[in-house]
Design a protein around this nucleic acid. Structure first.
Lengths: 210, 210
DNA sequence: ATGTTTCCACCTAGGTGAAAACTT
DNA sequence: AAGTTTTCACCTAGGTGGAAACAT
């Protein structure tokens, strides 16, 4: 007879800006890749509870392929050719991580539970690239026209040289996206322009009541 | 008979940009205080050796009064009235530290010895203020027209809730300065403009050979 | 008279999507 | 034809000292 665990991990991660993410998700989120690295928008932001205040943790981010398809945007619809694509994803395991083959480490890592729980944790400085050999640690290598799902890992950091212990991994289906080198869906472009302050140059003058 | 220690701490801190600091020191360095907080220029930068790569350390910065005098710039010379000033420094021990009464903590604290030793450590984001109750942790409260000497503290950070252990404190006489709300010595102003990229608006066009 | 505060033009530094050029 | 790269104007964000206004 199956024995189910009586307790669950006390650690809770709560995704922020779910309303905004939903708007993008309903149109199929796209994220830009450039050689020099492009930030994500929206930014991945989470609140955390249930850590031990005085224990040391690392927070890390990587991207897991949602499938092995190559996606195309045809007639205002994302579609696949129905065949698995084994040429890129399966051959190069680095895709979705940094040049070191490791997830992106939040720049405040390592830090104490009390620190991580004291404020929203923002992954605003991670950059997405299609360059196979980026020179910076904050660059995540992705494959254009492939679909990814962000994951956040919480590790216990040990200050004696031992490897860190992976405590838990959280995935956020709402934040999955297709990596592109240029936006395909113009509605996605419009949403980005509307909400990303750095794209203000392209905003139409808007009604104050909105 | 006096017994002298046979060993010294293996930790070495090496101040960077000593040539630049010397130029300022020879004119009497001044640092601006503002309500909103002003960065230091030059920036305090150090290299560190001799830490244990796998031990966790905090790096902290504060400012120790060089004396209890109030300084005046008269006839192109800094001078005191020869009397100790007991009204401000001795009554308010917070001067030279943050609003919490603590030194400024380098934003990458805590981190491992291998991290701190891997690159120059820059205190470029600390801000100096004369506001008695700043709202931000990166603000150091100083008293205008008083003279200070920067100190860097290295602490061992313990990930079990125990208070950190102060391992060593380094002072840098070359970087001492008088806090001011407006520059007094125009030669200091000229040096700041010449070397601080953010003051480029005030630079005279310069000869390329310089 | 002396010292402080506020506001400002002018920078650094770098994040946007558009459009044109380029590649295959 | 389909996708990628480069360059660009236009932003965000914020660090300078100057100058005038202000405070004591």
């Amino acid at each position: 007879q199956t024995v189910y665990p009586r307790t669950e991990s006390p650690v809770h991660l709560e995704l922020q800006d779910t309303e905004l993410w939903s708007c993008f998700e309903s149109l199929s989120t796209e994220m830009i890749l450039t050689k020099g690295g492009r930030r994500m928008f929206p930014v991945l932001r989470v609140g955390v509870r249930g850590l031990d205040p005085e224990t040391l943790y690392d927070f890390k981010l990587d991207f897991i392929p949602c499938d092995n398809y190559r996606w195309r945007y045809v007639s205002r619809q994302w579609q696949t050719n129905g065949k698995q694509d084994n040429t890129s994803l399966n051959q190069d395991r680095r895709y979705g991580v940094t040049i070191k083959g490791e997830p992106y480490s939040h720049p405040k890592s390592p830090n104490y539970g009390r620190f991580w729980m004291s404020d929203i944790i923002e992954f605003k400085n991670v950059k997405l690239t299609n360059r196979p050999n980026p020179t910076k640690d904050d660059h995540i290598i992705l494959n254009s026209l492939h679909k990814y799902k962000p994951r956040i890992h919480i590790l216990q950091s040990l200050s004696n040289g031992q490897p860190n212990i992976l405590l838990e991994t959280f995935t956020f289906p709402l934040t999955s996206f297709i990596a592109v080198t240029a936006y395909q869906n113009e509605e996605i472009t419009a949403l980005k322009i509307r909400h990303n302050p750095f794209a203000k140059a392209f905003q139409e003058p808007r009604d104050r009541t909105e």
